[in-house]
Amino acid sequence: MDIDKSEKFTWAVRVGYFSRAILYSVLGIIALTQTDRIAEGTNGIFRAIENFPAGNVILWLMVFGLVAYALFRLCSLIFDIENEGSDKKGWAKRIGHTGSAIAHFALAYAAYQFATSSEGSSGGASGGGAQQAASGVLSFEFGGIVLGLLGLALLATGVFQFKKAWTGEFMNRIGPGAPNGTKILGSAGYFARGIVYFVIGYSLLKAGFGSGGSDQIKTLGDAVASLADDGLWFTITAIGLLMFGLFSLVLARYRIIPELDSDQGIPKFRA
Rank of each mutant, 00 (worst) to 15 (best):
H104L: 13
L71M: 08
I95P: 03
I38D: 08
A101Q: 02
S126V: 08
E84D: 12
E119A: 09
L71K: 04
H97E: 14
I95H: 04
A54P: 00
L59E: 05
A110Y: 00
Q132F: 05
L61D: 13
F114K: 01
F46W: 05
F72L: 03
I95E: 12
K89L: 15
D80S: 02
A103Y: 01
A111Y: 00
S76I: 08
L61N: 11
G127V: 07
Q131K: 06
V67P: 02
N56M: 09
S117I: 10
I22E: 03
A21W: 02
G129R: 05
Q34C: 06
D87H: 07
L107Q: 06
G99C: 03
G41N: 07
I81N: 00
A48I: 13
G136N: 03
G41A: 07
G28H: 06
F46E: 08
Q132K: 07
I95F: 09
N43K: 06
G90K: 04
Q131V: 03
R47F: 05
G44I: 09
I38L: 08
Y24L: 13
A130E: 12
T116S: 11
G85D: 09
G124N: 03
A110G: 05
A111N: 08
T35R: 11
R20Q: 14
W60M: 10
Q113E: 15
Y112H: 02
D36E: 14
F105V: 10
I81Q: 00
K88H: 11
N43M: 07
A92T: 15
G65T: 09
G44W: 04
A31M: 09
I78T: 08
F64D: 10
S100Q: 15
T42M: 00
S135H: 02
A70H: 01
A54G: 09
A130M: 12
S117L: 06
N43C: 07
R94S: 09
N56S: 13
K88D: 14
A70V: 00
A110Q: 13
F79K: 04
A21T: 13
R20G: 14
R94V: 12
R94F: 07
S25L: 11
T33K: 04
W60N: 07
I102A: 06
G85Y: 00
D80T: 07
N56L: 10
F114T: 11
S135V: 03
A108W: 03
E50N: 07
F114V: 12
L32F: 03
A130C: 00
E84I: 05
F105G: 05
D36T: 12
G44Q: 06
I58C: 05
A54Q: 15
A110N: 08
V57D: 15
I49E: 04
Y69H: 09
Y24F: 15
I22S: 01
L77Y: 03
M62W: 02
A70F: 03
S19A: 14
G65D: 10
L77D: 08
I58P: 00
G28Q: 09
A111M: 07
F79W: 07
L74R: 01
A31C: 10
A54D: 15
H97Y: 15
W91Y: 14
F79T: 10
R73I: 10
T33Q: 04
E50S: 09
T42F: 01
Y112G: 02
G129F: 00
E119V: 11
S117K: 00
A101L: 02
K88E: 14
S139F: 04
E82M: 02
A101T: 06
L71C: 04
N51K: 12
W91C: 10
S117W: 03
V26M: 01
K93W: 15
L59S: 04
E119P: 01
